[in-house]
């Protein structure tokens, strides 16, 4: 099984993707080009779950949308199951959209509140002309079962259901065309913690049953750690670290990842609160700092970081990191040591 999966092209294979927008600077400035995603490569194998983490403004959502051409990519390549997405014509694109689907953060916002649940879930089948009327009905029932919604949900309107149930509807809709990949953009961020766990379990169950792979976009490291086999860390449009989730979270290499991990709340009243390692705000993507894009907030930044952009290099244990000094950084908490740089 595993061997056969490896022979197939990955669910999605992204190389050097660039997404840029032309926007007018605040005030009466000239139009400037903003690179929301700046040369990101990423791969999601069949049946795998890959996490993509970063603060708001890091470009992770834009990246997810660009994979389905819902945001305009201006460079690089995207292959879904080996087929080119960015160069696809109208008809090919529609066919490709059967194979990759999305689940959004705000469950009610991603559902048409004027449609009944049954029609919402059936719509991808209607659009893609999959099956006939009878088989579509049966498929909708099957999908509702699969995501753990009651049978009678079919005839209801989304606002009659709870947030967790709404997200299950969105998942059922995403599964309708039997895609190979589902891009989950903060799928549980809008839900209560107790509901989050339920929805995450449903995601896992569905993966076991269908072999679908997930690109799981989130700012919540606890959720990603729980679900993803591999994790990419994004900062200001670029990947700064990538590796198996276990090692990324247990021994983060990049100062940014270390900051994120240190900032993750842990339910332990004994643990002392410490001052945050990450200070300040993520810079505007209109003014990406030269050199290492993280140097303005990095407690370890040196002269070289301001001038030379580090490349994503192998760490030797399956991970990759984009930092000039990751080998030399103190293993202990940098807050114990006097901080350099700053502001």
């Amino acid at each position: 099984m595993q061997a056969r999966r490896d022979e197939l092209p990955p669910s999605v294979d992204v190389r050097d993707l660039v997404v840029q927008f032309r926007v007018r600077a605040p005030g009466v400035g000239p139009r400037v080009v903003v690179r929301a995603v700046d040369g990101v490569s990423l791969r999601v194998g069949r049946g795998a779950t890959v996490g993509l983490v970063g603060e708001s403004g890091s470009g992770k959502s834009t990246f997810g949308r660009a994979l389905l051409r819902l945001a305009p990519a201006s460079g690089g390549s995207v292959r879904i199951e080996g087929e080119d997405v960015l160069g696809a014509g109208h008809r090919e694109l529609r066919a490709l959209r059967q194979r990759a689907q999305m689940v959004f953060q705000n469950p009610i916002g991603s559902l048409n509140t004027r449609m009944r649940v049954g029609r919402i879930v059936r719509e991808p089948l209607d659009i893609q002309r999959i099956g006939d009327r009878v088989s579509r009905r049966a498929r909708v029932r099957e999908l509702l079962d699969q995501v753990g919604l009651p049978r009678d949900a079919e005839g209801r309107y989304p606002h009659e259901l709870s947030g967790g149930q709404q997200q299950r509807i969105a998942l059922a809709r995403a599964l309708a065309s039997a895609p190979s990949l589902i891009i989950c953009d903060e799928p549980v961020a809008a839900l209560d913690v107790s509901i989050q766990a339920q929805v995450l379990e449903v995601l896992k169950d569905v993966q076991r049953a269908t072999g679908v792979s997930y690109l799981f976009i989130s700012h919540d490291l606890n959720v990603v750690r729980h679900l993803a086999h591999e994790t990419y860390v994004m900062y200001l449009g670029g990947v700064v670290e990538h590796g198996p989730s276990a090692s990324v979270f247990a021994s983060p290499r990049h100062p940014y990842t270390r900051g994120l991990v240190a900032a993750t709340p842990v339910a332990d009243p004994e643990r002392a609160r410490r001052s945050p390692l990450l200070r300040g705000e993520i810079p505007s993507p209109m003014e990406v700092p030269p050199g290492c894009r993280f140097h303005t907030r990095c407690p370890f930044a040196e002269e070289r970081c301001r001038e030379e952009a580090p490349v994503l290099g192998e760490t030797g244990d399956g991970g990759r990191v984009a930092c000039h000094f990751w080998r030399e950084l103190p293993r202990e908490d940098p807050r114990a040591a006097p901080t350099r740089g700053g502001a």
Binding site: L70, Q98, F104, N106, G109, M115, R173
Partner: peptide, 23 residues
């Protein structure tokens, strides 16, 4: 987002306007 979702499912602009905006 529900319009983005419809587009992601492959819906045409006409279909989106009639089914997801007009209502």
């Amino acid at each position: 987002d529900h319009v983005v979702a419809a587009r992601a499912a492959g819906a045409s602009s006409l279909r989106i306007m009639l089914r997801h905006v007009l209502p």
